[in-house]
Write a protein that binds this DNA or RNA. Structure first.
Length: 233
DNA sequence: AATTCAAGCAACCGCCGACGG
DNA sequence: TCCGTCGGCGGTTGCTTGAAT
């Protein structure tokens, strides 16, 4: 007695998607929206598993996807988020508009891991590689010490009292907020570039510590709940 | 020019939690 | 409360492409 398969595998295509399949999927979603993935293939006339359709749409066909290389800013943001969240790719992707969890996961494994290794940082723990081994759980999420945060450039220690946290906002007690979208950003007077404080770069515009601005409004989706609205609240 | 190897990426697999009956 | 279904997620696989020999 195993779990029933997600679809009838004997009559589904696998492997790379053809242009025709893509077109069918796009046309169907444009006409009917993202409805029930399980029934979508049948309705759309696709010989594909519903999961496969969903993956193809989310990772490749969605119109709001940002294709192309990652910027240095995106690199650094991914590194910061990974040090805080671990391999929670969907959460990380939520902070990078136009990027998908799969894309970020692949990018991490192929580029950022090497980048960190070349800096002498263990991509798993975000610790210096030659630092004496400490008892670190396999999952680095939650295992990142204050020292690590300082090492990685977002120290939150109170300089006067190392035992006191200055950043209650970084209590990532698994309260998830929605991806922030285009918060108001002050301009750097010299370069004209938009400068974000750390809190904004992490999507924490509502943070008391935010030095950029206040009162920004953010988009909401149907999945939001009153508790998850208050990220780190 | 042919072959081998490695890197990059799209797609698949299986597990888990949420939800509804 | 239990059970089945579904969507979503993270890990992994395998194909494609380009570099090296």
């Amino acid at each position: 007695m195993g779990r029933s398969p997600c679809c009838e595998k004997a009559h589904t295509n696998k492997g790379a998607w053809t242009k025709e399949e893509d077109d069918r999927l796009i046309a169907h979603i444009k006409a009917h929206g993202e409805g029930c993935w399980r029934s979508l293939p049948k309705v759309a006339g696709l010989l594909r598993c519903g999961k496969s359709c969903r993956l193809r749409w989310i990772n490749y066909l969605r119109p709001d996807l940002k294709r192309g290389n990652f910027t240095d800013e995106e690199d650094e943001l991914i590194i910061k988020l990974h040090s805080l969240l671990g391999n929670k790719w969907s959460l990380i992707a939520g902070r990078l508009p136009g990027r998908t969890d799969n894309e970020i996961k692949n990018y991490w494994n192929t580029h950022i891991r090497k980048k960190l290794l070349s800096r002498g940082i263990d991509p798993l723990t975000h610790r210096p590689i030659n630092e004496p081994a400490v008892d670190v759980p396999a999952n680095s999420f939650g295992a990142v010490s204050n020292q690590d945060r300082i090492i990685n450039g977002f120290g939150c220690k109170n300089q006067n009292d190392p035992d006191e946290e200055n950043c209650p906002e970084l209590n990532l007690e698994l309260q998830i907020s929605l991806p922030y979208q285009n918060p108001p950003q002050p301009l750097d007077g010299n370069s004209g570039r938009k400068m974000l404080c750390f809190y904004c770069s992490m999507g924490l515009q509502n943070s008391k510590e935010c030095s950029c601005s206040s009162g920004s409004s953010r988009g909401r989706s149907s999945r939001s709940s009153s508790s998850s609205d208050e990220f780190l609240g």
